[in-house]
Design a protein around this nucleic acid. Structure first.
Ligand SMILES: [Mn+2]
Ligand SMILES: [Mn+2]
Ligand SMILES: [Mn+2]
Ligand SMILES: [Mn+2]
Lengths: 219, 219
DNA sequence: TTTTTGATTTAGGTAAACCTAAATATTTTA
DNA sequence: TAAAATATTTAGGTTTACCTAAATCAAAAA
């Protein structure tokens, strides 16, 4: 199987397996990769033959250690390039994903490791997502949704749940970014919108929809 | 035709057309790309349909303006990434080509232009080869072979004719690199080897074979 | 427990970029 | 200029990753 394609499948299965411990279902993989389920069926057979996933017909697919490592290394490359694009080339966090989606398939270990060093071995990408180390060790971001913060609680923004450019741009407009100190002033009874004070200055409301996609940690 | 493949064909045709003004011949393209001539024949038809080359059966292929621009932009990307790999990541000039060969196919104009700016808009890559500007303007390196230098002439090394890693490593061992001031002390009658003094210090002999692949300019 | 629905796989195709072997054109040599 | 050598194209295949439509399976509902 072409390396490129393989990496995309394994990354999709990894992502889906994070939400569903059973593994990744054919239809969900198809949706994730924007291809038809019948194509996925075929490919799962091949990945299984290559011992990259465990798979039985009609069941969810799970990664083997070998497959998981490839998935993690692909994520590592993706996120390192995202850091490069933002830190070195000055791109905004909402425009980098499509580029990283291609750069992640450049496979030269020495390049990846030198890039990491050049970037000071970052542990998170511009969206707050953790970057696996060269051995595939990744430490899950310990966070909760902003909606879970109580009134009067002060929290720090550490990530986002939704990665769409429109959401990111909206956060930019609101003045919310990674590291922002967010004080939940109150929660509106009517629609669960929240009144926030960010970095001790401006006060403004955000919808529950937004709050659900903002990840924070205790301060 | 897949962009990736297209770029490789156009780059090969560009390169061959530099040496042979007639254009690029099927067999030569095949050799350059390490594929069979019959495959090239097919592809030339397609490139021609896409108006990227001018081509008539049994004749040499030449680039159209459109095709030439794609070739030059591919070369631009290739050489910019080579500069990045050496200047920012610390790779040696003899190990970067295979990586650049893949990175040159990442196609995001904004990325290319930001990369160029990040690198201070370099006009030559680590091998001394010129980098086309964003409009495809490229100024040919004005140079001559070291074999053309006369005895007692002082010249500056500006490029190489042979791009093999083994040749580059040999130059490293000799202490010859871009910018070296080379004084041709004498030419040996027997085998045309040359006695050089580099940067006013060490004296050593190089074979005619080496001298033929070193490009220099008057100092 | 039977039906119905939805998920998944299978069967049979397509398009791209290769390949080998055979045919044909062009160029070189005698 | 005819034969031989070389270059190129054509014909017919292969492989990979897709696809659509039809068949089959499994889970949910009746
Ligand atoms: Mn991303
Ligand atoms: Mn990211
Ligand atoms: Mn190169
Ligand atoms: Mn180069």
């Amino acid at each position: 199987m072409e390396r490129n394609v393989q990496e995309n499948y394994l990354k999709a299965i990894y992502k889906l397996s994070e939400k569903n411990k059973e593994g990744a279902y054919t239809n969900d993989i198809a949706a994730e990769l924007n291809i038809k389920p019948s194509s996925v069926s075929e490919s799962l057979k091949k990945l299984s033959e290559e011992h990259l996933i465990k798979y039985q017909k009609y069941k969810a697919a799970t990664l083997t250690e070998k497959g998981k490592l490839i998935a993690l290394m692909t994520i590592r490359k993706h996120r390192l390039w995202e850091v490069f694009l933002v830190e070195k080339l000055g791109f905004r966090w909402d425009e980098i994903h499509p580029m990283a989606e291609e750069m992640e398939h450049i496979n030269f270990d020495e390049l990846t490791e030198r890039l990491a060093k050049f970037l000071d071995n970052p542990t998170a990408d511009p969206h707050g997502d953790p970057i696996p180390d060269k051995h595939g060790k990744i430490k899950a971001l310990k966070s909760k949704k902003l909606t879970e913060a109580k009134e009067k609680e002060l929290v720090i923004m550490v990530g986002i749940e939704n990665h769409s450019p429109s959401f990111m741009k909206h956060l930019d407009n609101l003045g919310l970014s990674l590291g922002s100190a967010i004080l939940v002033k109150s929660v509106v009874d009517f629609d669960n919108s929240m009144l926030l004070s960010v970095n001790k200055s401006k006060d403004f409301y955000i919808s529950r929809e937004v709050a659900e996609n903002v990840l924070v940690k205790e301060s």
